[in-house]
Simulated assay, not measured.
Amino acid sequence: MKRFHLNLTVRDLDRSVAFYSTLFDQEPTVKKDDYAKWMLDDPFINLSISTRGDAAGINHVGIQAHDDEELALLRERLVKADAPILDQDAVTCCYANSKKAWISDPDGVSWETFVTHGHSTSYGEGTDAVEAALKPAATKANKACCGT
Rank of each mutant, 00 (worst) to 15 (best):
K2A: 13
K2Y: 13
R3G: 04
R3S: 08
F4E: 06
F4V: 12
H5C: 08
L6S: 01
L6D: 00
L6V: 14
N7D: 12
N7V: 03
N7A: 15
L8F: 05
L8C: 07
T9W: 12
T9R: 13
D12Q: 14
D12H: 13
D12K: 14
D14H: 11
R15H: 13
S16Q: 11
V17M: 10
V17H: 02
V17Q: 10
A18L: 07
Y20A: 11
S21H: 03
S21Q: 05
T22I: 03
L23G: 10
Q26F: 04
P28G: 09
T29R: 11
K31R: 15
K31S: 06
Y35M: 05
Y35A: 02
Y35I: 01
A36L: 03
W38N: 03
W38L: 03
D41G: 14
D42P: 01
D42F: 13
P43Y: 04
N46Q: 14
N46I: 03
L47W: 00
S48A: 13
S48T: 07
S48I: 01
T51W: 02
R52G: 07
G53K: 11
A56F: 01
G57L: 08
I58F: 04
I58N: 12
I58W: 04
H60C: 08
H60P: 04
V61L: 15
I63M: 10
A65W: 00
A65S: 12
D68E: 15
E69R: 14
L71P: 00
L71I: 07
A72H: 10
A72C: 08
L73R: 15
L74F: 10
R75Q: 11
E76I: 03
R77D: 15
L78M: 09
L78K: 01
V79M: 02
V79T: 08
V79R: 02
V79F: 03
A81N: 01
D82M: 05
A83Y: 01
A83N: 04
P84T: 09
I85F: 05
I85C: 05
L86D: 04
L86R: 13
D87E: 14
D89M: 09
A90L: 07
T92G: 06
T92R: 03
C93L: 03
C93W: 00
C93M: 05
Y95K: 10
A96R: 08
A96S: 13
A96G: 04
S98Y: 00
S98A: 13
K99E: 06
K99L: 06
K100E: 10
W102L: 07
W102T: 01
I103T: 01
G108W: 00
V109F: 02
S110G: 06
W111E: 02
F114V: 07
V115Y: 03
G124C: 07
E125C: 05
G126V: 07
T127H: 11
T127M: 06
T127D: 11
D128C: 02
D128L: 12
V130F: 09
A132E: 11
A132R: 15
L134G: 02
L134D: 02
K135I: 08
K135S: 09
A138E: 03
A138L: 05
T139I: 13
T139D: 09
A141W: 05
A141R: 10
A141G: 10
K143V: 14
K143L: 15
G147K: 10
T148L: 11
